[in-house]
Amino acid sequence: MDCKQIEEILTQALGLEEVHVTSDGSHYQVVAVGECFDGMSRIKQQQAIYAPLMDHITSGALHALSIKTFTPTQWKREKIFNMPL
């Protein structure tokens, strides 16, 4: 499955402000940023990402998914602390 397809699916389903998907063979890494994650537990955030992708996961088109979710405020802080010097 193409990274851009995953980004489009998640953006449309969740109204995300940013989504970045990379792959290393069959393993995909998702970084999702959206207000929808505000107040959600980590488990609920993960479930929110899995839900629109479930058909692709069960079909085997999408395998081994690593997820990081942030609110826009958390993402801004994450980018500041992880900027290369």
Score class of each variant (00 low, 15 high):
Trp75Ala: 08
Val30Gly: 00
Gln47Pro: 00
Tyr28Val: 00
Ile43Cys: 02
Thr69Gln: 01
Trp75His: 10
Ile49Leu: 00
Ser66Pro: 12
Lys44Gln: 12
Arg42Phe: 12
Leu65Asp: 01
Ala48Cys: 08
Met40Cys: 14
Gln29Gly: 06
Ala61Asn: 13
Gln45Met: 00
Thr71Phe: 02
Lys79Trp: 03
Glu78Leu: 02
Cys36Gly: 10
Gly39Gln: 12
Met54Ile: 06
Leu65Cys: 09
Met54Gly: 06
Thr69Arg: 01
Asp38Arg: 13
Lys44Leu: 03
Gln47Thr: 05
Asp55Cys: 11
Asp38Val: 13
Ile43Val: 12
Tyr50Arg: 05
Glu35Ile: 04
His63Gln: 12
Lys76His: 13
Gly39Phe: 14
Gln29Ala: 11
Gln46Leu: 07
Gln45Pro: 08
Lys79Leu: 13
Ala51Pro: 15
Ala48Ser: 10
Ala32Tyr: 04
Arg42Gln: 15
Val30Leu: 12
Ala48Lys: 09
Met40Pro: 04
Gln45Ser: 05
Met54Tyr: 07
Glu35Phe: 13
Pro52Met: 06
Leu65Asn: 02
Pro52Ala: 05
Glu78Gly: 04
His56Tyr: 15
Val31Glu: 01
Lys68Leu: 15
Met40Ser: 05
Lys68Met: 14
Met40Thr: 05
Tyr50Phe: 03
Ser26Asn: 10
Gly39Ser: 15
Ser26Val: 02
Lys79Asn: 11
Ile67Lys: 10
Met54His: 11
Gln47Phe: 14
Lys79Phe: 02
